[in-house]
Computed example of a mutant assay.
Amino acid sequence: MDKNKREEIVQAVSEKIEAEKDLLTELDSAIGDGDHGINMARGAKAVMEKLPSLIEKDTGALLKGIGMAIVSSVGGASGPLYGTAFMKAGDALKGKEEPSAEDFLAAFSAAIAGIKMRGKSTTGEKTMLDALCPAESAMREAIEAKKSPKEILQAAAAAAEKGAEETTNILATKGRASYLGERSIGHRDPGAVSSAFMLRAMADAI
């Protein structure tokens, strides 16, 4: 993956978040602070402003720089969680110009581990992990089946979308949504949805 393709993918993800910010805010208004879409769009803008200084670097440094831009610009829980995810992924890909599918899976797993650590959370709690963990499993299965990079990301995106949809039926036990108790059931988790949006944008761009 050359620098032009990396730039194209980052831009596609940023544009997807900007396009869906109103939906993300609507989802968060139902069970959270109502600022997820606004915060994510702010982070996407910060990433695009930082991108020219990062694009010549290797993939690991690029991801780490994206994480730092998110942490410094995004409020709420999503800033530390997404920022940690990108920085951990960057650490896993340190020095790699063109990571293999296996490298990318290792980075994705590191990102998830970072989210679990930062959020003290796991699956089944109505969080972004309910989209990302199924995506990780689908990615691993696609790699083992010798699928192409496009097919691997498409499988991950589809699993994330399914996982995000299924958060509708989960009782929230983490974050602001947990204060609602049973009333959190019937709503999709905005973090799971934004995670699925990002993976879909990557899959479509690659």
Rank of each mutant, 00 (worst) to 15 (best):
D2W: 03
D2M: 04
K3E: 12
K3R: 12
N4I: 14
N4K: 15
V10W: 08
Q11K: 15
Q11E: 10
S14H: 01
K16S: 14
K16Q: 14
K16C: 11
I17G: 01
A19G: 05
K21Y: 06
K21E: 06
K21D: 05
D22P: 05
E26H: 07
D35Q: 02
H36Q: 04
N39C: 01
A41R: 01
E49L: 07
E49D: 13
K50N: 02
S53G: 02
L54W: 07
I55V: 15
K57F: 03
D58W: 13
T59V: 05
G60K: 06
L63M: 12
L63Y: 06
A69W: 01
A69G: 04
I70R: 01
G75I: 03
S78K: 01
S78F: 01
P80F: 00
P80Y: 00
L81W: 02
L81S: 04
T84W: 08
A85E: 07
M87E: 14
K88W: 04
A89M: 15
G90K: 03
A92Q: 12
K96V: 12
K96C: 04
E97P: 02
E98S: 14
E98M: 10
S100Q: 11
L105S: 06
L105R: 12
A107D: 11
F108V: 02
F108G: 03
S109H: 14
A110C: 08
A110T: 12
A111T: 08
M117D: 15
R118D: 04
S121V: 10
T122K: 15
T123M: 13
T127L: 04
M128V: 08
M128P: 01
M128C: 06
L129F: 08
D130W: 14
D130F: 14
A135L: 06
E136R: 15
S137E: 15
I143S: 08
K147V: 08
S148D: 10
Q154A: 15
A156N: 09
A158P: 03
G163N: 10
E165S: 11
T167C: 05
I170E: 08
G175L: 05
G175A: 07
G175C: 03
R176E: 12
L180F: 08
G181D: 09
G181F: 01
E182F: 05
R183I: 10
S184C: 10
G186A: 14
G186I: 14
P190S: 07
P190W: 14
F197L: 11
D204H: 07
